[in-house]
Deep mutational scan, measured.
Amino acid sequence: MQNSHSGVNQLGGVFVNGRPLPDSTRQKIVELAHSGARPCDISRILQVSNGCVSKILGRYYETGSIRPRAIGGSKPRVATPEVVSKIAQYKRECPSIFAWEIRDRLLSEGVCTNDNIPSVSSINRVLRNLASEKQQMGADGMYDKLRMLNGQTGSWGTRPGWYPGTSVPGQPTQDGCQQQEGGGENTNSISSNGEDSDEAQMRLQLKRKLQRNRTSFTQEQIEALEKEFERTHYPDVFARERLAAKIDLPEARIQVWFSNRRAKWRREEKLRNQRRQASNTPSHIPISSSFSTSVYQPIPQPTTPVSSFTSGSMLGRTDTALTNTYSALPPMPSFTMANNLPMQPPVPSQTSSYSCMLPTSPSVNGRSYDTYTPPHMQTHMNSQPMGTSGTTSTGLISPGVSVPVQVPGSEPDMSQYWPRLQ
């Protein structure tokens, strides 16, 4: 039975679970980093996980050691009161100082060594604690504590007292930064006198190289990059290397530039699409467009005044059976039934097929058609009795279509119309 579990990581490298990497692998990681390889490249070359490479390099940059820390136990506290007071002093002298600059000053002034120097995250935590204590304490208590930490007896009751030896409130920041720059020169002199001055200088240079600022491109470089971006948004590694040799930039910087440029292009394309949609959409909808001609068919113009009344309900007709019959029939052209047409008796099958359309009241044959006459024609229609054979009435077949029909004066039988409509 094995005491430890061995495995293979996602890159194909072998590791022992819970145990640190061998010293030979750690040394190779540092050597590759000094030669300029990126952590992701080191991870692929040595088949070590990216997190492990970053952790080893980060500890090497901070402490200069590649040895693993002790497994188990607690780390001794490195942010001692003396170190905290120095950090507060540096922050007062130059409020814009960075944590890694404070760390360098602690090393250069001999406050800490490589073994007990606090990390950048520890210094940031100390600065946050100082800021929170400043908010919790009152103004007087804060000034007393700062005077105690600074070891001075001057008056701290006013704002300019934060910067000793100065009279203009805006000047101390520059003086403090100048003092810090002077301390940086002392850093070089002190570290050069040490035993491991060369190694420390190499480590600091490598650290500065990794902690780079934003790349500033010249106009020629920007023009070359934009020209390549117009050709393709995704250049391959050969195109990037050719462009890197042409404009004297690292291939990694060119790759990052193209990634950022593609993101910018997507944002601009989104804005262009929004403007295009806004320009195509009308600002207001016309009133006429809300009524579609496919839904509402136009009603033909009436030929006679009587045809303006298109349904039985508008003429005072309360018989719903006839109203439904007229509205359900398709529109037909106007025609006239003459008196000489043969009077065919209704076929029983045809009569039964339209039995649902006729009223059940037996008085329908005896009703006159003056009910369908509009009010303004009552006088004219009353002067001509319906009993004469020459009287013409208008029957409504569908809305908007008038059918003048000659009705025999002897017997106005409704059943004569249905064979004609089939």
Rank of each mutant, 00 (worst) to 15 (best):
P20M: 01
S121G: 04
Q136I: 11
T113A: 13
M142T: 10
G72R: 05
Q135T: 13
R105T: 10
H5Q: 11
V8L: 07
R44W: 07
R77C: 01
S132R: 13
N124G: 06
L107G: 15
M142R: 12
P118K: 00
L11K: 06
L21M: 03
Q135C: 09
S54E: 03
I102D: 00
P39N: 15
H5S: 11
V126Y: 02
R59S: 03
R92F: 13
V14E: 06
K91L: 01
M142W: 13
K134G: 11
R128S: 05
A33L: 06
N116Y: 09
Q27S: 08
N17R: 15
Q2A: 10
I42W: 00
S85C: 09
V16K: 15
L11W: 06
C40M: 06
N116F: 09
V8C: 06
I102S: 04
V83K: 06
S4L: 10
G7D: 08
F15G: 03
R125I: 05
I45A: 13
L146A: 12
A88R: 08
K86F: 11
L146Y: 15
R92M: 12
G58P: 00
R26V: 03
E133Y: 11
G12A: 00
S108F: 10
R125F: 06
L106G: 01
S132M: 11
T80D: 01
S74P: 03
D41N: 07
C112Q: 04
Q47G: 04
P118Q: 00
Q2S: 12
D104W: 14
N50H: 02
S85A: 12
R103V: 07
A99Q: 05
T113H: 14
R103P: 00
K28H: 06
S24R: 12
G110T: 14
R26M: 03
L149R: 15
I71Q: 15
N17E: 01
S132W: 11
Q47K: 15
Q136L: 10
S121R: 03
P118E: 02
Q27N: 08
E93D: 08
G73I: 02
C94L: 13
S43P: 02
V14Q: 10
N124K: 06
Y60I: 07
L32Y: 08
I29R: 01
R77I: 02
E82D: 09
T63S: 07
V48S: 00
R125S: 05
N114W: 08
L107N: 14
G72P: 05
P95S: 10
D144W: 09
K28G: 05
R59T: 05
G7I: 07
A33R: 14
L57R: 03
T25W: 04
S85I: 08
N150L: 12
P81R: 08
T25A: 08
P68C: 05
P39Q: 15
P20A: 05
C112N: 07
T113V: 14
V83M: 03
S65R: 05
S49W: 00
V16Y: 14
P68E: 04
S65W: 03
I102R: 02
L107Y: 14
R69C: 06
D23C: 10
R38H: 02
H5L: 09
K75P: 02
S6E: 09
R147H: 14
A70W: 05
V84M: 06
V30C: 05
K75D: 01
E101H: 07
L146Q: 14
G12W: 02
Y90R: 05
A99S: 09
K28L: 08
D104M: 11
G138K: 15
A131R: 15
N3A: 13
L130M: 07
S121M: 00
G58Y: 14
E101T: 05
L146M: 15
V83P: 02
F98N: 04
N17D: 02
E62C: 06
D23M: 15
T63L: 04
Q10N: 06
R128M: 00
G18V: 01
V120L: 07
V16G: 03
L11M: 07
S132A: 12
N114A: 12
A88T: 10
R44F: 05
P81S: 08
G141H: 08
V14W: 08
K145N: 10
A70Y: 06
E93S: 08
E31L: 09
A79S: 14
C52I: 00
I45F: 08
D41V: 07
F15W: 06
S85E: 09
R103A: 08
L21D: 00
P39L: 07
V111F: 06
L146C: 11
G73R: 06
R103N: 04
R67M: 09
S85R: 12
I117W: 15
P95I: 08
V16L: 13
V30D: 00
M137K: 13
R69Y: 07
I117L: 14
S85Y: 09
L146P: 10
I97Y: 15
G138R: 12
G12V: 00
S43A: 07
V30R: 07
G141C: 13
K28S: 08
A33T: 08
S54G: 05
A79P: 01
Y61G: 03
P39F: 04
I56N: 01
N3I: 10
G12K: 03
N124W: 15
A70G: 10
Q135W: 10
S6N: 09
R19Y: 06
M148E: 10
A70R: 14
Q89M: 09
G72C: 05
P81L: 07
Y60C: 00
S4E: 12
G13L: 01
I71A: 14
G64E: 02
R67E: 11
L127A: 09
R103F: 02
L21N: 03
S35E: 14
R69D: 03
P20N: 00
R147Q: 12
Y60R: 02
S108M: 13
R67N: 08
P81Q: 08
C40W: 01
N50Q: 11
P20L: 01
S108E: 10
V111Q: 09
L127D: 03
L11F: 09
T63C: 06
T113W: 09
I71W: 06
L106I: 06
A139N: 14
A139K: 13
G36P: 03
Y143C: 10
F98T: 06
R26T: 01
T80W: 02
N9A: 04
A99K: 03
K91Q: 04
